[in-house]
Design a protein around this nucleic acid. Structure first.
Lengths: 191, 191
DNA sequence: CCCATAGGATGATTGTTGTCATCCTATGGA
DNA sequence: TCCATAGGATGACAACAATCATCCTATGGG
């Protein structure tokens, strides 16, 4: 290889990261290949030296996005006092900060319905990501047995996703915070 | 007027209804004006005899969609035994039937993130719809005072929206039902 | 029975986007 | 120093969509 072996890989990673951000901000349909390449400081044509097509980029950036918040929330839990892990996750997820920055946040909250419309094959891939996500966070959830924790994960996660999504539709920060707080209080009292 | 006064209104309503369906199935960006007109048995050009632009159609069809499930859920509650109203709503919303038919379902679950990306003006309109929706359903919610019922509405609604959205991403009906059931059990035990 | 009118159809225009063939150029081995 | 190569740039293409000017035709009042 003429260029350092790392070079192409580094560029590829940068494109994926920029796409992971843009996709959450503008949706999968709303994200143009050209825009992502511009983010990465490149032009649209070179795109196909890195990806077979747009779908491949979307798949990789989804994976990147799931990895990002999965790790971020796991870290929040690690910094929490013992027994408070899941509460720390709820507070972080239901923060105004997360609500107002979909581009760095949970891809389910940012892209749910679009993922729901994907074809069977894409859904299988999404499933794998969701399971990876769940496996990362379920241990921090309330409950004794593994199965209890997994059920708790889905109950809590459902509430968090819905609350953030509803809040994001609202025009004022005060209203958003009110919805978030309602969900926070509800969850923190429920387990 | 040459044609019966009702004629244009009837066609207009049909277009809006077809759009309300298509928008929930394919998203707002994903819905083409031409496709909606074909649904209505017309061609794309005549569209602008009925709407100033696509945005006006989207606004009207959103309103239609909110009206549809608002009424539908209110009716479900009316058929329930006294005191069981909110439980009936939860069961209907978290049914596999609703999950598998986004095109007739709740627009928040079907379009949440897209609505979140709308401009301030559109969000104000969405807010009005959400409030209309809340006012219709809050009286059926658990709690003594009006404020309690409204908080309960947002807590329950958050969980329902999130659960349906997560379920819709999953590839098999069995997995979808599992997520729905987890949320159902969680909510029915929580109030 | 005729014709002014408004709803609807046709077709063009403009802008956007995904994709690809082709060209350019920096690189580092010989 | 020179050149084969691969990453990236340019520009073209086809699809598709929103919008609109213009045309067509069924209607029902005169």
């Amino acid at each position: 290889m003429r260029y350092q072996a790392e070079h192409k890989i580094a560029i590829h990673q940068k494109i994926v990261k920029d796409a992971a951000r843009r996709v959450r901000a503008e949706g999968m349909t709303g994200t143009a290949v050209g825009a992502v390449m511009r983010d990465a400081g490149l032009t649209h044509g070179g795109f196909y030296k890195h990806f077979r097509n747009k779908d491949e980029l979307l798949t990789e950036s989804l994976s990147e996005a799931f990895g990002q918040i999965g790790d971020s929330l796991a870290q929040v839990a690690r910094r929490a006092k013992p027994g408070m892990e899941w509460k720390a996750i709820v507070k972080a997820y239901l923060s105004l900060e997360h609500c107002d920055h979909a581009e760095w946040g949970c891809p389910v909250a940012a892209l749910g319905p679009e993922l729901a419309r994907a074809n069977q094959q894409s859904k299988e891939r999404v499933l794998a990501e969701v399971m990876r996500y769940r496996n990362k966070l379920a241990p921090m959830m309330p409950g004794r047995r593994r199965a209890d924790k997994e059920r708790a994960f889905f109950a809590i996660y459902s509430t968090m996703v819905g609350a953030v999504e509803i809040a994001r539709m609202l025009p004022s920060p005060a209203m958003r915070e009110k919805v978030l707080k309602t969900a926070r209080d509800f969850l923190l009292r429920s387990f």
